[in-house]
Structure formats: C-alpha cells, structure tokens
Design a protein around this nucleic acid. Structure first.
Lengths: 147, 147
DNA sequence: CGTAGAGTATAGCCATGGCTATATCATAGT
DNA sequence: ACTATGATATAGCCATGGCTATACTCTACG
C-alpha cells in the first residue's frame, strides 16, 4: 500500500497551483458582484450594510471590497448612495449566477444533500472552469433525459 | 426571464461564506502537507527548494509556509535540513490525498477531461466537505458496478 | 582541508481581506 | 428647519501569502 503519487512534472504542477491561486483571487470579486446583483433584483437596491450582512463581514470590509469592484470597473457608486453594477459587472454576475446554479445542481445530481450542496458549492464554484462547467451541463442534460 | 435568486436568510448565507473562507484558510496548509508527503514518498526527502518549485512559488514563500506548518504542529525541521511531517501532518496528508483522488475521479466520471479535472480539482478539493466526499464515493462505487 | 556554489534563512517590501473605532453624511420626524 | 439616528466612509490595526535582495550554512570537489 505504498500509495505512491503520480508526480507530474514540477512545472505542470506549479501551473496548476498558480491557476488555483488566480481563481481564488477572483473569487471575492465574483461573490460580491453576484451578491449585489441579487440584492438589486430582489430589493431594487444594493446597500453596503445589506451586502456586509449577507457576506458575513463587517461593514468597512464590504466598503473596501466595493472599492476594489469600482477599481476593476465592475461597479459604481456615489458616496452614501447605493451600489450599482456596470455592464461588465452585470454580465459577470449573470455568468457567476448561472455557474453557481449548475454547480449546485451537479452536486445534487451525484447525491449530495441540497443543503450541503449549497454550502460546499459556495467555495467550489470559483474553481469550476468553462470546460468543467460544460461537462457538468452535459451530464445534467443527459440525466434529465434518461435513456 | 427574471432570474430572481432564491435569497436565503441573510444569516444562513453569511454562514456559507464564512465557511468558504475557512476552507480557503486551510487550503494552503493542506496543499503543502500533501506536497511534502508526496516528495518524501517519491524522493525520500522534502527539500525547501523542491517544495517551492512544485508549488510554483519563490523559495522564501515556501520557507514561510513551512514555518506556519510547524507552528500548527504539522511539520518539523531543523535549519538547513529537510522537512518532515508529524503524525498529525502525515495523517492530514493522507486524508487530503485521498480526497484529491476522489474529487478528480468524480470529475472524470461526470465527463470532465482528465487534464482539466486535475487543474480544477486542485482548487476544488479544499471545499469538498466530508458529506460531499461521501456522496462522491458512493456515486463512483455505483458507477463502477453498473446495473 | 579550504573554498566555491548550491541550498536555506532572514529582512523587509507590497496587496489583500479581515477587524474596531470614529468621523461624516442623509434623512425622517418633530 | 433642526436634530437625532442610522448608514456610510475613513483611519489604522493585524495576519496572510506573495515577492526580491541578501546573509548564512552545508557540502562536495579540487
């Protein structure tokens, strides 16, 4: 039972880790953009206090994150006013939301309880690439039309 | 096509994000421990330079991370000597390695190309909880014994 | 057995993403 | 029209995880 690992070339392995780090860096932006989009479509507006509460962070943390969204051209806001998404932000939000739904649906499809799927999906989703997402969709489609 | 999101209670949503953040915090430790374990089992030793190269980071970054492993009781080392895992570290490495294999296998099982599964799996794995992992294993078992 | 070169550690920088404490603004209700 | 209150912004702290530059140590070879 040596369990000897495969050990791919170092350069390849390094690239995989670098990729995971990049996904992680994008994750925060994605989460905030999706949250803002949700709040707007449900409440008609996205306020810093609500964003902070739902993200589970203190209000200044949310303010700082929103500053980063603005720097990246994903959101806009005037002081003491609500937050809005740019076109780029709205588009990103839609993609993230769709991916989120697919990821959770796939987890459920392979037998993960819905509640757990929501929890794990929240972190998982940011590492699901376009090709993996496509595979998930294909799998779900095949399952919904069995035989 | 309103696409109105589900909007769970704020407290629940906040807990999900907090959980994802915790997973992320553990991810680095898990990756290093697994890497050290792999290097030891393949090369007989884990050297800082090799760890850094395979993780795709500069050598001082690896040294710093190893310092954190030591603080957390997962690894030991004497200056200018190789890195070793404590019992806790070795046990964690084994769990992480097993989870990694299962996650990649599941991705492949639902149709993700092996190469992509390896890349995405590297980031995904840290967010796969025990219950989700169990579901993955069950799904794989059912598939290997079809009908 | 001395030393050059490889490997490791240390110092110190930066950005990020948390936090608390506090200042500032907007507005609803007298 | 004031003002109290709640919402937002700002200041400044901390740990993390990157980096480069540099100092130190080990070791193998000549």
């Amino acid at each position: 039972m040596s369990n000897a690992p495969a050990h791919p070339p170092a350069s390849l392995q390094a690239r995989r880790f670098a990729h995971a780090r990049e996904c992680q860096a994008r994750a925060l932006l994605e989460d905030y953009v999706e949250m803002i989009s949700d709040l707007i479509s449900v409440s008609g507006e996205a306020r810093v206090a609500d964003i902070a509460e739902r993200m589970g962070v203190a209000q200044p943390t949310a303010t700082k994150a929103i500053g980063r969204l603005k720097r990246e051209g994903l959101a806009t806001s005037r002081p003491y006013r609500g937050i809005f998404l740019t076109d780029a932000g709205a588009e990103l939000a839609e993609r993230v939301r769709a991916r989120h739904r697919t990821v959770v649906a796939l987890l459920v499809a392979v037998g993960v309880p819905a509640e757990i799927a929501e929890i794990d999906g929240e972190g998982l989703e940011h590492h699901v690439s376009a090709r993996t997402l496509a595979a998930f969709e294909k799998f779900l489609a095949a399952q919904n039309r069995p035989k």
